[in-house]
Amino acid sequence: MSRPDSLESLKNRIAGIERLRAVETAALAQTGHAGIDDALGGGLARGRVHEVFAAEAGDAGCAAGFVAGLALRLGVGLGMGSGGTLVWLREAQAERQGGRLHAPGLVEIGLDPARVIIGIMPDPLAVLRAAADVVRCAEVGVAVIELWRDPRLLDLTASRRLALAAETSGVTVIGLRIAATPSPSAAQTRWQVSAAPSLPMEANAPGYPAWKVELLRQRGRPSGSDWRVEWNREQACFADADCGLNAGESAAIAAASSGAVLPFSAGRPVDAANELRRAG
């Protein structure tokens, strides 16, 4: 056998062992945000592990909101059949420190609490053990695994195991990591989420949930871009938050994030005022 041939056969064997994923393409779920969907090549892959990082404990609430939005986009609560359930695993300590998940708050995001099962575990080991069971159950739609800080147990092996189980069963796994530093893992995508100023409503009231989302890494595609994203509950999709900012804030954010300066457009308060005038 010539050398290139043997190399080729060896490569094939390794590919067979690794179950190369290029062959099986995952179904994609659109996020609704054009920029993010473009960067992801169409949307968020189902049956994969995605990681969402919040750098500080103070961002726990906003990261939870972002994850709830992702879960909705992945089809939680649509139809009573398979794939409609969200299982959210947390540590008891997170429940005490970061506040417990509040069902009316989930409703406000658009998520039906009846489709949510929460697991409150004593330690990270229990969370990961339960996660292994949850991810293997194909009837679960989305499994959220919330871990605080950097538990030593969550290493490459553990995340690889989760990823393999998720590929087999088709359950989408979202690893929510609060106050954690991104580290190598088997995740398909890795995000960093922090709070962003919302577009003000009338009378300078806080507006819809808004985040600064950065795509830290994704498998097989370029990464590194960031967006300011808003959650639109009525359409249950992510939307671009930059277009509604007024000039001053937009410039300030552009200066802060050194991103592209977006064209000025009328902010929501102006619209609201117009509508009021029309109504009156």
Binding site: A60, G61, A64, G65, A68, G98, G99, R100, L101, H102, A103, P104, G105, L106, V107, E108, I109, G110, D112, P113, A114, R115, S198, M201, A205, P206, G207, Y208, P209, R233, E234
Partner: peptide
């Protein structure tokens, strides 16, 4: 599972997602 009331449309969330 129990049924939940739908939120008011056109308003940003009035209840938090994490409650202490």
């Amino acid at each position: 599972p129990a049924a939940w009331d739908a939120p008011q449309s056109g308003e940003p969330p009035t209840r938090p997602i994490h409650l202490f």
